[in-house]
Every structure is written in structure tokens, then in C-alpha cells.
Simulated assay, not measured.
Amino acid sequence: MYLKSLTLKGFKSFADRAHMTFEPGLTVIVGPNGSGKSNISDSILWVLGEQSAKQLRGQAMEDVIFSGSSARKPVGVAEVTLVLDNSDHMLPVDFDEVAITRRMYRSGESEYLINSSPCRLMDIQDILHDSGLGKDTHSIISQGKLDAILQSRPEERRALIEEAAGISKHKRRKERALKKIKSMDEHLTRARDINKEIARQLRPLERQVDRARKYKELSSRANELTQMLAVDELRSLQSQWNDLESRSKEGAAELELAQYRLGEKERELEKLQVMLEEKGLFVGDLGEQRRHMQDVVGRINSDMRLLEEKGHNMVSRLSDMRGQISSSEHQRRRVVEELEDARAQLEEVTGAHMQAQDDVDAAGPAAAQLHERRVALD
């Protein structure tokens, strides 16, 4: 693998498109001070993902964009494309050439591309991990960095040696894995908190379900008892109705019998009056018999009034019984409506319980999967 070409456009002093081709071996760029030799190494460092403006000899990252001159207007975008020969497939991609491109606009937006396909900076770093290339590797030593390396502390030299030996990439992978584990622990803690909260909310719901179940059982039992009482009361009222109806029929029969007897007595009276007239009985005897017959008629009238009073009483009791039957029917309807309301409340509580149970079941596999991933990462 070697650096095959480098293309700059709008980067620092390269306002126009500049394309440089390199061959395997040693390549030297010679020029006077201020000609832009360091800008080439800065462009390589920048396209590999450098995020510090000081490492690029600038105050802000926007300084890498050509800011203009007396003869040229400033440009709005800086673009650098670095092409690596990957015929030996040292880089883990299925291409013989790997072109890494970075663009930056004056608005501060940046773009990374691998072989003209958009990607992330992390993707570029992952590809270059095992090749020894990168913004923090020993493969790029910019101006003044060699002297800093020679005068560096042992800890800084150790970091350089670890980078050269390929240890730092494993450290970065370890840091990423630790960050993922930390994030996983946070998600697991959150899942546990959610599970606890659901369990805490589930307990009162279970108690409500138990109360609703008991209420349903008691309501069902109360409904059965109410219906049994209503049936018994209806049967009793029906029996009383039948009894009163039979008494009414008996009273009517007795009234008809009394009227029949009264008619017979009247006919007997007429016969007696005819016999008295025919036989010429004394006025005294006739008067006595008349008084006797009037007494009989009075007793018959009294019996008739008594029978009529009994009939009125029977009609009044029959009206009262009809009112009781109507009240019992109204009470039965009210009990049925209360039962329907209780059933609606039970269905609502049952739906809440089923929703809470679904939430618990949905959170359970996620918590188990997070725990398994944590164990695997450990």
C-alpha cells in the first residue's frame, strides 16, 4: 500500500485544483519559504480527520479554506482527496484503490467520502486502524513535530511507541467498548427502573383486579339473590292476586245468590200480599207480616251493602297489589342497570391490567437481552 495521488482544491493556498501523483519510493517537494510545502502535509493530516486547527497551523478550522488574495476572490469550500493504492488489500475493503475525501464549507459543515460514497469520520478511522495511518499516528510528522518528539516527556514518547507498535488502536477500541458498556449499563439501569416502576404500578392494579373480581362475584351473587327475591315476591303477589280473584268471584257469586234470594223473597211477599187480599186477613195481621217482611228486606239490604263493601275492599287490595308489582319491576330494572355499570368498570380495570401486563412482558425480553449483551461484553 502506498500514497498514489493527492488532489487539493480550495485548501489554504491552493485556490485552483492541484493534482499530485506519487510513485512508490521517496518523493521530495522542494520550494522556497512560503510556497506552500507544509500545506501539502497539512492537507494529508486534514483529510485523515484532524479536528484541531492548531495542528493545522491555524486559529480556526475555517482557516483551511482559501480566504482570497489581491488577485483572487475567496472560495466557499475546501476539498482534499487522498488516493491510496490497495492492491495488496491491506485496507479491509474490496477495492484496489481507496479514495478518501473531505469537504468543508464556510458555514462549518463537513463531509467525508470513501470512493465518492458519504461516510462518517469513524468509518475512515476504522479502515485506517491497521494500516498505521491517521491523524495521531507516527506516519505523519509535520513541521516542528520532530523536535517536539525529541524533547517530549517519557509519557508522550510511550504514546508514540504504542502507536508505532499498534497498541493505541486497541486502546481506542477498548475505550469505545467501555463507552458502549457504560451506555449499555445506563440503558440496563433505565430498563430496571422502568421494570420496577411497572411492577410498582402493577401491584395496585392487581389489588384492583382482585377487588373487581370480588365485586363481580358479589355483584353476580347479589343479582342472583335479587332475582330470586323478585321471583319469590312475584310468586307471592301472584298467589295473593289469585286468592283475591277467587274471593272476588266468591263475593260475586254470593251477591248473585243474595239477589236471587231477594227476588224470591219479593215474589213470596207479593204472593202473601195477594193471599191477604184474597183471604181478607185482618189489617193487624197483615201489618205484622208486612213489618216482618220489611225486616227481612232490611237484613237482605244490609247483607248486600256488606257484600258491596267487601267487593270495594277487594278492588282496593287488587290495586295495591298492582302497584307493588310495578315497584318490584322498577327495582329489578335498577338492579340490572347497576349490574351493567359494574360490568363496564370491571372491563375497564381488566383492560388496564392487560395493558400493564403487556408492558411488563415487552420490557422483560429487552432487559434480558441487555443483560446477555453486558455479559458477552464483560
Score class of each variant (00 low, 15 high):
L188T: 04
A362V: 13
L237H: 00
D243Y: 02
R120F: 10
L128E: 02
H353S: 11
G25W: 01
H187P: 09
Q259T: 09
K310E: 13
G298E: 10
R235A: 06
R106M: 13
M184F: 13
L6V: 00
F22Y: 13
R322P: 01
V98L: 15
R207W: 14
K182F: 07
I44P: 09
Q369E: 07
A78D: 11
R57P: 13
L160Y: 06
T137E: 11
S67Q: 15
D130Y: 08
E245L: 14
E206S: 02
S319R: 01
I65S: 07
L56W: 07
R17S: 09
Q324N: 01
M184Q: 11
H138E: 03
D210Y: 00
V375G: 01
P92G: 06
L45K: 07
G311N: 10
R373M: 11
E111N: 00
R317T: 06
K216C: 00
H353P: 12
R176G: 08
N39I: 04
T81A: 05
G364I: 10
R291S: 15
S326I: 01
E233C: 01
D185C: 01
R299F: 15
K174P: 00
R322M: 01
A15C: 14
I300T: 02
S43N: 02
E277P: 03
Q59P: 00
K179M: 04
R153E: 15
H129V: 15
E256W: 05
G311S: 12
G49S: 01
R211Y: 07
K180L: 06
V98Q: 05
R172N: 07
E268P: 03
Q59E: 12
I198H: 05
L205M: 10
L150R: 02
V83S: 05
L6N: 07
P118R: 13
G144L: 04
I127S: 05
E233D: 15
A159E: 06
A99C: 06
Q259G: 11
S316Y: 12
A366C: 14
D232I: 04
K4L: 12
S110L: 10
K182Q: 11
H170Q: 04
L45I: 03
H170D: 06
H292N: 11
L272K: 04
D285N: 08
V231H: 08
K265D: 11
D94L: 07
W46R: 02
E329F: 03
